[in-house]
Design a protein around this nucleic acid. Structure first.
Length: 729
DNA sequence: GATCCGTGAGTTTTT
DNA sequence: CTCACGGATC
């Protein structure tokens, strides 16, 4: 046992390891089976032959063999069958997918047969654009006489995007075949909560609130969604994770059914429906399934470790025929989305699903210094279950070991980080720094400190533009123009008015839907007298429904809505700033379909209003320190990375301390955070953290578990902090 | 039936 | 701190 930096600490570890032991056994077996199908470039004389064959192939203009490392080359050129690529952090995963895409095209695969599923749309576009550039530049400096080179348009025919955007497109494109209305509305999580609340109130279930309060809508949404994505019955889920509300199980089960029917009746799809409904159609509609199987012959899935069960089913259903080529890429060390239903077992069971599958590993790291790699490899060893892997670098200079520094409190921690940024700034741009937090709330002190020190920063993750109340309000108007059956939006709009509450709103919505979705009931007998504003509402909806452009619609709505906002919010002026952003977005779209779809599935995730404020005189608008949640930092990298709040109970989060699998995920989360760093990694922890949820004062076990030689421990004395006096004294 | 106000309970990560 | 609910009041 090697010494650790905190020998005196002891931690309570989850005690449910034995319960899940059978499951782990199964996973271990599947891993072992697939490891047996590992194909490696080094041990395989084929690689040289492969390189030679590629070099001889006159149809190829890109020099794959010299631009990729041997295993990347293998991944890029292994086309047939089912393949899992374990791509370690910083191993050139995007590059490999880019070259593979180009390789497919060069080998005559029609782009329309390629399906590329990624975690974000940005990732999909990046791969497509880079492949495009690759093909174009190679074509221009190549002596090849190949005349069938793809022109610049061709790559647009590749189907790419997130699971959600892909399924959304399928539902609309094949609405006829599937017998559904193509003009459906997408409910984001907040909308789904509202819908559940609405159904709950309308149905007036006989809840026994005298025994135990009925759960709030947020909890209900969470339970229903988790139940679907993890395929756990509501009863089992509640008994295991929400034992307090067990008395309400029958009602919640009924609510889930009624909620589902409500969505179907009103052409509403929440995030889960978008995927699950496609899966259901694939299972039951042979024509549809065969159509997709014939259309998509080459399928690539990125971030496979973060897929959930419905997403895996979707892939498996399309890939059923042996002739369909499937390559899934991921890193089991980086599965961090279980809270959203992601199932880390998918990647571990790949060998069970596809016994003939091949395994390729990318272990050469192009990102981090050897000292940092040493650290993250040590972290990786602490992860109980997974494919064998060891990242290595060809960089000779070891670089600086990760630094661990413990400070007396969160303010000191923030000061330390700011101090270090300023100290290193001469050698770096602000762009080169990132502060990664377990929860968005943990960045508060950092933000304050950076503001005081005039360090420019941008916050990623946290409160999203699209979730702000006034944006949701305006979009509700747009949504009912698109889908008048969108009862959630109707409800939202109608309750804005004085004299109209939940009951009137529901009745009015029903009247409108019953009247073939005309707006007339707004003017008719029982409702018109409820509020002075229903008449102007009728006018603006009528006007906006005839508008020529998305931008015009937004303008019409804003004319009507801003006076209302003025009345209900005192900071309306500040909020109105956001409307500029909304209008700019609207200008980019020429149809409501695309506008709403993009806003729902690919929302602008940084609050642009906040960005505008920090530009106090600085010309260099883009040079900013990134402050981000760890989740939002996935896939990114920075030369200098700070990971803060490394107190046991914050990282790992206290809610995960009693469950083996949840704790493992926290460990992976920390792994993701550390593996973002290229040259310097700073780990910081305050002495304690106190909130209503508990008092925590031990350093994170993730740091304590490693042998002491992996980090250098820095003492705060080196830094002279400014006075603790508030600025206004 | 709508709204206002006081009280009490819950706060991770996001397509 | 924020959200939801119960009860009083319009």
């Amino acid at each position: 046992m090697t010494a650790t930096i905190f020998d005196t600490q002891d931690y309570n570890y989850p005690d449910n390891y034995n319960e899940i032991r059978p499951k782990l056994k199964r996973l271990e077996q599947a891993i072992k089976n697939l490891e047996a199908n590992l194909i490696e470039a080094d041990s395989n004389a084929n690689t040289e032959m492969l390189g030679q064959r590629l070099a001889d192939d006159l149809n190829l203009t890109v020099d794959y063999a010299s631009e990729l490392n041997p295993n990347q080359l293998l991944a890029a050129t292994t086309v047939d069958g089912k393949v899992l690529v374990i791509a370690g952090a910083g191993s050139g995963k995007t590059k490999t997918l880019t070259y593979r895409t180009s390789y497919l095209i060069e080998n005559g695969v029609p782009p329309s047969q390629i399906l590329l599923l990624t975690f974000t749309r940005k990732a999909a576009n990046e791969i497509k654009n880079r492949a495009q550039t690759l093909l174009a530049s190679s074509a221009s400096d190549s002596h090849s006489l190949n005349s069938s080179l793809p022109n610049s348009k061709v790559l647009n025919d590749i189907t790419s995007g997130t699971f959600h955007s892909f399924c959304n497109r399928l539902l609309r494109q094949y609405s006829g075949l599937l017998g559904i209305n193509p003009r459906f509305t997408i409910l984001d999580t907040g909308d789904a909560e509202d819908a559940i609340d609405l159904v709950n109130k309308e149905k007036k279930y006989p809840t026994q609130t005298n025994i135990q309060a009925f759960p709030r809508k947020k909890t209900l949404q969470n339970i229903i969604s988790t139940s679907r994505n993890r395929r756990i019955h509501i009863r089992d889920l509640i008994e295991a994770n929400y034992p307090d509300i067990a008395v309400h199980i029958p009602i919640i089960e009924q609510l889930a059914v009624d909620f589902h029917e409500y969505k179907r009746a009103n052409h509403l799809y929440d995030f889960d429906d978008i995927i699950s409904q496609v899966v259901r159609h694939l299972k039951t509609n042979d024509t549809f399934r065969q159509l997709l199987q014939q259309t998509y012959r080459y399928i690539m899935v990125d971030e496979y470790q973060d897929t959930n069960i419905p997403q895996k089913q979707l892939i498996d259903l399309i890939c059923q025929p042996d002739s369909v080529s499937l390559m899934v890429v991921g890193d089991d060390n980086q599965s961090i989305y279980a809270f959203r239903g992601a199932n880390y077992e998918n990647i571990l069971l790949f060998g069970e699903t596809y016994p003939a599958a091949k395994l390729i590993k990318l272990e050469q790291n192009y990102r981090s210094t050897p000292a940092i790699l040493d650290y993250i490899n040590a972290l990786s060893e602490q992860i109980t279950l997974g494919y064998q892997k060891q990242l290595y670098s060809k960089i000779k200079i070891a670089g600086q070991k990760p630094v661990f520094c413990r400070l007396s409190d969160e303010r000191k921690e923030a000061k330390y980080i700011a101090d270090t940024v300023i100290e290193l700034k001469p050698d770096y741009d602000y762009n080169d720094f990132a502060v990664l937090c377990r929860t968005s709330f943990q960045s508060n002190y950092i933000q304050l400190e950076f503001m005081e020190r005039n360090i420019p920063f941008i916050v990623v993750g946290g409160i999203k533009f699209i979730e702000r109340r006034h944006i949701k309000d305006v979009l509700a108007f747009v949504k009912i123009l698109y889908n008048p059956n969108d009862t959630i939006s109707w409800h939202r709009i109608l309750t804005l008015f004085k004299g109209v509450g939940a009951v009137t709103a529901t009745k009015l919505t029903q009247a409108i839907n019953a009247d073939n979705n005309s707006f007339e009931p707004l003017l008719a007998a029982p409702f018109a007298k409820k509020s002075e504003q229903l008449k102007p509402l009728y006018a603006v909806l009528t006007k906006a429904s005839q508008a020529e452009s998305v931008e015009q619609i937004i303008d019409d709505i804003l004319d009507f809505y801003i006076p209302i906002l003025k009345f209900i919010e005192d900071n309306w002026r500040e909020r109105s700033e956001d409307f500029r952003v909304l209008k700019n977005l609207a200008q980019e779209y020429n149809s409501l379909d695309n506008f709403l779809e993009n806003l729902a599935l690919d929302p602008p995730n940084d609050s642009i209003a906040a960005m505008g404020k920090t530009e106090s005189g600085s010309n260099d608008d883009n040079d900013k320190v990134t402050i981000s949640t760890i989740h939002s930092a996935k896939g990114l990298e920075w030369p200098v990375v700070f990971v803060n709040s490394l107190v046991d109970g914050m990282t790992p989060h206290h809610r995960s301390l009693s469950d083996f699998e949840e704790l493992e995920e926290e460990r992976k989360l920390f792994y993701v955070a550390c593996s973002r760093a290229k040259t310097r990694l700073y780990l910081t922890a305050p002495d304690y953290f106190a909130s209503y949820s508990g008092y925590f004062d031990k350093p994170s076990r993730f740091i304590a578990e490693l042998s002491a030689d992996k980090v250098s421990v820095e003492t705060v004395k080196k830094y002279t902090f400014e006075s603790d006096e508030p600025a206004w004294w």
